[in-house]
Amino acid sequence: MVYVVVPSDVFFINSLWKGFYEHLGKRQPATLTVDWFNATSSKVNATFLEVSSTQLKLSGVYKKEEAHLLLKVYQIKNPREGFVSKLENDNWALNGYVSSGLERGVFTYQGDIHGNGFGKFMLQRQSPLSVDTDHPNHYYGTNSSSVAAAILVPFFALILSGFAFYLYKHRTRPKVQYNGYAGHENSNGQASFENPMYDTNLKPTEAKAVRFDTTLNTVCTVV
């Protein structure tokens, strides 16, 4: 059988563990979120959330050589009557070992709960893809699709605005009309137009004649 080595940072920050614990002979769902982890001292701070939304702040030192972790309660939030009284009278703690499965990245933290009326517990570390998005103590990194959208949206907006500006300039550009005459300004400041066929400055003998080509024939075909 192949065993996967448990890494020293198996309780990395923001990792989420889901499973159950036993209380008065019944299994109850629970989650454990790692709030802080020191790689040098292997100290772990975590929040244990049980079914009634009571939060237990836990702290302990992970012994990587033995894959052992004892988490003791030091603070209680949203206490439930009856449940908390047992915790205050006892030195409530999670005392367990981490084991690895055949599948890579699957680790289980299980053992016994120190406290009157409590039994065993078992918590399995969740992969990032299976983490419940509604869990209040879990933090997420930036989504790659969101980053891509944030980059592409302004880029396409810039392209569209440039295209719209081009259309606006093209529609508002004044059109130049050609009237077929060459305009000139004479000495009196008045514009005059010239037509090579009607040049008034030419002498009668220099008048240009309009010639017609007698060689052109017009052929009409009647159907």
Rank of each mutant, 00 (worst) to 15 (best):
L87Q: 07
A93P: 02
N89A: 13
K57S: 12
V44A: 06
Y62K: 04
E88F: 09
W36I: 06
F20C: 02
Q110P: 00
G25E: 10
E50D: 11
V106Q: 06
S130P: 00
S53Y: 10
K64L: 04
P128D: 12
K86V: 14
G101T: 11
L56S: 06
Y139I: 12
K72W: 07
Y62P: 02
G25T: 09
L32S: 01
T31V: 04
F107C: 00
G19F: 02
R80N: 12
P29N: 09
N95E: 12
H68D: 08
E81D: 13
G19P: 03
P79Y: 08
T47I: 13
N91S: 13
Y97K: 10
G19I: 05
Q55D: 07
V106S: 08
N38G: 05
G115A: 08
L56W: 05
V34A: 00
E88V: 10
D132L: 10
M122K: 12
L24R: 15
N89V: 12
L32V: 02
T54R: 02
L87A: 09
V44L: 07
S42F: 10
L56N: 04
E66A: 11
L49I: 12
S130N: 14
K63F: 06
G101A: 07
N78P: 01
A67N: 15
E65K: 12
F121Y: 07
T54A: 08
V44S: 02
R125Y: 01
K26L: 13
V131K: 11
T54M: 14
P79W: 07
T108K: 05
Q126A: 08
A30K: 00
G25W: 05
L129G: 07
S42E: 12
Y139V: 14
F37G: 03
H135R: 02
E22S: 08
A46C: 01
V106M: 04
N137S: 11
S127K: 12
R125A: 09
N38R: 09
F20P: 00
A46F: 01
V73L: 10
H135W: 05
H114G: 04
K64C: 05
L49M: 10
A39M: 10
T54Q: 14
K43H: 13
S130K: 11
V61F: 08
E50R: 07
G96I: 01
T33K: 10
G115Q: 04
D90H: 03
F118W: 08
L71G: 03
T31Q: 08
G96C: 00
L94V: 03
K43G: 03
V106E: 07
G115I: 05
S85H: 11
G101S: 12
H138L: 11
V44M: 06
H114P: 00
A93V: 02
K86A: 14
K43Q: 15
N78K: 10
G96S: 00
L49H: 02
S99L: 02
H23N: 13
Y62W: 05
L102S: 08
P29H: 03
D35T: 14
N91Y: 10
T40N: 13
L123H: 00
G111R: 00
L58W: 05
Y74H: 14
F83S: 06
K18V: 14
M122V: 05
E66K: 12
S53I: 04
V73P: 01
